[in-house]
Design a protein around this nucleic acid. Structure first.
Lengths: 256, 256
DNA sequence: ACCTTTCCATTGTGATCACATTATCCTCGC
DNA sequence: GCGAGGATAATGTGATCACAATGGAAAGGT
């Protein structure tokens, strides 16, 4: 099968050439990444790619708060690389609307507005049930077990009040399903959407906690087992609604 | 009003510093661009931005054919700038899925597959009628006149067999409507989608001509005038269906 | 005290160089 | 002739430097 990208490529940074910051480089471990598609991940790819994934995970799993500034040299220092791969990764994330460059040319994690929020909800409710429905026939029992495992991890994290863990596993739960649809084009739209509400999700959970969270994951898993497409659509739709209304509480109070 | 980005900034290229290719620089005139949002456009922005717009227009209006290779240094030579702003523009377009980097690290205009095509149709039929519906209440009689003018230009181009002119004005017709929705987040999704089928559209028209094209623009304009939201949704949906089924003819024959 | 002005640190941008990898073409052996 | 192998050109990537614009702080004047 092998959907795409199974590159080898050694490269990655010409260690003898680095004469700038030192800083011991790799604080970013590049395990636990996995990426959107189920690629097994073997050898290092480009520095830019690693930087991109690192930033992406931070945004998606709560490493950044909305409104926080992002500087090229700052990130370069943090990650122990030259500003160049940072520039490309940031440019990419700006294109995906995960970051925003304001007129000042300052880059920041975009704040949320009620209008943007409403559009995100619409897009999610439109696209995610569709992706799930398309995925259903391609999901094997083994896949369902993996999906259920993600859900378990979500519950664990929720019980422990581990916000990042919750966000990460919730993401994995959803995308383990969607990814199976084999619909890269639609998947890319949804990924962009998630990148846009990620930081805000964290903010919301910071304020309200994860304890009184409900989700429809169990209903979705049941629907997958019974191959009930209508029920699956409904479960995903309801899950999106619940999750977003929870987050929406925060949006509607203050507009940053 | 001023939706966003009304930068001034002089800059743009430090003319005394250029000691590489000469080539007399600006073959790209940067009039006739207008950009997505209705910004009036006054002063020069960054070189990267100009390069981006240039490439974007080429993709959207038929300047590239699917599968054609794109090299950084090649484009830099063409546009008379250093490879640097090209890199950023290309990276951005890759993120928007307008270009694709294959495992070779070669950049090309992505080929179309039947699967991708189907997803594009779904996304368009889902999002574009919604955008039009949201825009309706914000569209003034003056706006309708402008929209109708774009439609006229479409007809003219069609009659003359001017494929690029057709594509450009068709784009303007649609986005003049959508842009009025004030839904940037959804608009960005649709823009990304258009970038993905642009090159293929050109290919299709090259093969079949523009003469036997029908559209639902008149129906959409009528619906706007009567403020009939249901009819507007239907007209946009039908227009998408017609246009895409025409393009689909080409997709289904050969898979490149 | 408060507002203005000047100065300096910081930021993103563009250019250029060095390098590893990949593609392309040419040549040589059979 | 024709295919394998090696030299050569071309490509994306990362690093580094120079520069203009911006932001913020310190100093000055009223």
């Amino acid at each position: 099968m092998r959907n795409e990208k199974a590159r080898e490529h050694a490269k990655a940074g010409a260690p003898a050439l680095r004469r700038h910051s030192s800083k011991s480089a790799s604080s970013r471990s590049r395990s636990d990444i996995t990426r959107t598609l189920g690629v097994k991940s073997d050898i290092t790819v480009t520095t830019h790619e690693n930087v991109y994934r690192g930033l992406r995970d931070r945004i998606l799993f709560g490493g950044f708060l909305p409104g926080s500034a992002v500087t090229l040299r700052g990130l370069a220092e943090d990650m122990g690389v030259s500003p160049m791969p940072i520039r490309e990764a940031v440019r990419r994330l700006i294109a995906e609307r995960a970051l925003k460059m304001q007129d000042n040319r300052r880059v920041l994690v975009p704040p949320m507005t009620a209008e943007t929020f409403e559009q995100i909800v619409f897009a999610r409710k439109t696209l995610e049930p569709e992706l799930a429905a398309r995925a259903m026939d391609r999901i094997s029992p083994a896949d369902i077990r993996k999906i259920a495992a993600h859900d378990k991890a979500v519950d664990r994290a929720m019980a422990m009040g581990d916000v990042s863990g919750y966000m990460e596993n919730n993401y994995r739960f959803h995308f383990a399903i969607y990814q199976k649809a084999g619909a890269e084009t639609l998947l890319a739209l949804v990924e962009s959407i998630w990148l846009q509400f990620g930081p805000f999700m964290r903010m919301s959970y910071n304020r309200w906690g994860t304890s009184d969270l409900e989700d429809q994951h169990q209903a979705a898993i049941a629907a997958l087992q019974q191959k009930d497409r209508r029920a699956l659509r409904a479960a995903i739709g309801a899950d999106v609604s619940q999750g977003m209304s929870f987050i929406g509480e925060t949006v509607l109070r203050r507009s940053s």
